[in-house]
Design a protein around this nucleic acid. Structure first.
Lengths: 335, 335
DNA sequence: CAGTAAAATGTAAGCATTTTCAATAATGCT
DNA sequence: AGCATTATTGAAAATGCTTACATTTTACTG
């Protein structure tokens, strides 16, 4: 009726109210200086009086940029993804960027469909978390003429940056310590299929072995057919026993621990268990697991920071940003 | 140099290439019928040839809608939030909506700042997850002239919908069973401060007691000063022992279990432990905890579905959408 | 106080679409 | 063939902003 006719307030309304031209209003909105203090105040008064808020869509059209960046993740329901998102959002906020979220999880969507959607939306940049991009997906992404940063995945895309964790060095140092103590019956339990990732993980371990004239052959791959690692590990530990078991997955850490226990393998008396593990989960587990803590929040924050640099045209000297694990010794290892 | 001059392709380019007017191109893009099959094919050919993708920003301006909805969550690094997001994204995808993510977590942002940002962005709607909205935040939100749906929080905002879980009924039934077996030494452990939420949680329990002529007085509030519930619970269970301990927080479930154990209280022999718990976490715990599983994914999916209805002008008959817990009996309860 | 440089403001042309309305082409009917 | 419809198409206005360029004010200078 009468109170409903919420008159849409545009830059014109404000200009009118303040008795100036819309150009002037635009100038005060964008704080471009060169407007007299007096008129500026008039305009600001009009803005609050009318409750005017610039239409970001129109701005986007006029400026050819949306101050929006697209984030692509495989699935939001992993703790580390959540933390990455937190980091990302916090720095996005600082630089006044909005984030749109896109998943590759549901089978409905090929990466190309998502990218298609993102280019339609004219996001200024895209940040991708993906452990295993297929060749063809990689090519689609390469052809996408927009600043990109990859989290957790090194790529060969020249126009993009990579922010990731240095698995290799962490494992190199840890395994080195064991070897120096004469402990070399170490296995790595993994369910990842992507060769790049696997190689990166194994390379550090192998290097530690090789420098000591030994060879690492403890890679235990969890076969695809097992619908979860629990089942496989239970079977495995009923037959095998090792001095050290390493896993690089949140989801496997506790499985290793429990299946060892269930097969009479004492942790850490018989076997040291080490994993990548979120500390919130670790707090729930007894014994707590000695673990590599991934700086997920920092990954997200850094990725976003790098993105802002790319968008500001600040020269991004380095394409690769390595972050290190923190290793936290807990009760699942003897020392 | 030469390959860089990536000519920007607009609807004009396409019109030109196809030898038609831009109006016609627009018509085929939007599949508005009324264009001859023959020309339609010409246009489509031009589109693929040029690799044209409609500019969603310009569309947004012309159509006065962005097909974007804003999601506000307190913190993305909780499992259930991740699942809510998954559900939301999946149905958003079906209805071709984009999602922008906003956090209230970092101290930097008042809700009003976030809302301000959202209205600038001209999102078509906003979905808010928040366990405890302050009165003033509620008012800011009420004044926001945009379709809203709240997840997990009943509000009095007339122009919005609520999608939430019915804590009350679940607890009513569970506690009723215990009482009928003569077990009435039941406590509820909680760290939430929002009275609405607490009242909702307690009301079901109380009702069960009252219907049997008893009174529930087992509400154990975790004081604010404890930086985590572990510490508090450890102290508590060193002095108290109950027949049944219920918690309604993922984060407390395992803490209850472990602190009981550490204080010589056997679960379930001495005490039944029941909680709200994500099944992925439950799989890591021994004994597994009998728990209410929150349909987080469904909460997100339903919220988004309701939002699409509001945006399509479909009449939304109900303002409240209740979802039920599933109660899963595991090893932490005697039966 | 005229003259000029600098500061402030306004005008109007984009930005890439959609859509109303008018114009044209195609079809059917007699 | 001629006319009335109807199906296609195009022209142009509208969407809400930025900004280059033009114009008007203001402030200085001698």
């Amino acid at each position: 009726m009468n109170n409903s006719e919420k008159k849409k307030v545009t830059i014109y309304s404000v200009a009118n109210e303040a008795g100036v031209s819309l150009a002037t209003v635009s100038r005060v909105i964008n704080d471009s200086g060169l407007v007299k203090q007096e008129t500026k105040e008039k305009v600001e008064a009009a803005i609050v009086k009318l409750g005017y808020r610039p239409n970001a869509v129109a701005q986007g059209l006029a400026l050819k940029k949306t101050t929006t960046i697209a984030l692509v993740v495989p699935d939001s329901s992993f703790l580390y993804i959540g933390k990455i998102i937190n980091g990302l959002l916090d720095v996005a906020k600082i630089y006044k960027y909005n984030i749109t979220l896109h998943t590759t999880s549901s089978s409905i969507n090929e990466m190309s469909e998502i990218i298609d959607n993102i280019v339609k939306s004219r996001a200024d940049g895209v940040i991708i978390y993906n452990e295993s991009l297929s060749k063809s997906e990689g090519e689609v992404l390469n052809s996408f003429q927009v600043p990109m940063v990859y989290i957790g995945h090194k790529t060969t895309n020249v126009s993009s940056c990579n922010v990731y964790v240095d698995y290799s060095q962490a494992l190199y140092e840890l395994v080195g310590e064991y070897l120096d103590k004469g402990i070399d019956d170490i296995i790595l339990v993994e369910d990842r299929k992507n060769p790049d990732t696997i190689n990166q993980i194994i390379s550090g371990i192998s290097r530690a072995y090789e420098e000591r004239g030994k060879t690492f052959d403890g890679y235990v791959e969890i076969p695809e057919q097992y619908h979860n690692s629990y089942e496989f590990l239970n079977k495995y530990f009923s037959k095998h026993k090792h001095e050290v078991v390493i896993s690089m997955r949140d989801s496997q850490a506790v499985a290793v621990l429990n299946t060892c226990k269930e097969n009479g393998i004492r942790v850490p008396e018989d076997t040291d268990v080490i994993s990548v593990l979120d500390s919130r989960i670790n707090d729930m587990v007894r014994p707590r697991i000695s673990s590599f803590v991934i700086p997920s929040y920092d990954l997200g924050a850094l990725a976003m920071r790098v993105m802002t640099k790319m968008l500001n045209g600040e020269t991004v000297k380095e394409r690769d940003y390595k972050l290190n694990y923190i290793y936290e010794r807990k009760a699942s290892t003897k020392n």
